[in-house]
Write a protein that binds this DNA or RNA. Sequence first.
DNA 1: ATGGCAGAAGCATTCTGA
Length: 281
Amino acid sequence: MLIASWNVNSIRSRLSQITSWIKHTKPDVLCLQETKVVDKDFPLIPFENLGYTVIMNGQKSYNGVAIISKADCTDIKYGFKGELKISDIVNEFDEQKRIISALINGIRIINIYVPNGSSLNSEKFEYKINWLNKLNEYLIQQEKRGEHTCLLGDFNIAPSNNDIYDPNRFVECIMASKIERETLKRILKNRFIDSFRVFEEFSGHWSWWDYRNNSFMLDRGWRIDLIYVSNNLLPRLKSSVIERDQRGNDQPSDHVPVMINIDYDEVFNEFDDEDEDIFEI
DNA sequence: ATGGCAGAAGCATTCTGA
C-alpha cells in the first residue's frame, strides 16, 4: 500500500503534474497540502476518472488539505474539531484549513499542513507553536483508539540538522529552531517514527527547495515533508522515498512528493486478529 | 537588513509562503 504526501502549492496550477504523477506511480493514498481552493471549486473529476475518491478541507487562497484515495475513506475528521471538544479556541484554529483525517484500509491517515511561522519573533511563530500544541491534544485523543496511524504532511520543521543543506546558515532560524524541534518531539512522544530515517541515516535528501536563488539547481534544500508511522505500523513499513524528480518539472511546486510502502495484507490480517481477541473477552 | 520566486485575488498591487 503506497501512501504519499505532497505540498502542491495550488492544486489548480499543478493539476496536470499531479494526475501524471498518479498515473505513473499509482499511489493508494495521496495527501495534499496547500490546495488553495474552496471545496466547491476543487477539481474532482480528473481524480475520479482515475478511479480515486477525494475528501477535502479547503480554503480560499491559502492552506487547504485533501486526501485522494483508491479505497473508501471512513470516519472522516475535519480540523481539530474532529477529535477535540468544540470550543472558541478550537473554532479559531479551525478557521485555517490545515488538517484532515480518515480511516483507509484500516489505517488512520492524518494529513497536516503545519503553519510556517515566518520568523521566531513574529506572532505567526507563536501561532505555529500553539497550533502544534493543539495537534498534541488532538493526537492524545486519537491515540486512545489504538489505531495503526500514519501522520504525514508538510511539517515546516527540519527535524535535525541532517535535514538542511547548510545547517550552520540556519542556526535558530525558522523551521530549524530548538523550540520547534522540541515541540515536535513532544508531540511524537515515543509513539511515532520518521519513516525516512528508518532507511537513510545521512544528510543530502530534501523534499523542498526555495523557488528563489536558484536553490534547486544548487541543491540547496530542506527535508520538511515527513511521514511518521506509529510503532504498531513499523513492522509493516517496507520503504520510504522522496520523489525528487518532480522538482524538475516545468512550473513545479517548491515541494516534491514523499511516499512510503506499507505491507497492507499483514495490517489487514492483524486487524482481523484483534477483532477476534475482543470477541473472546 | 532586504529581496530573491510563485500563486491568489483581481486588475495594480498586496499578501502569503518558507
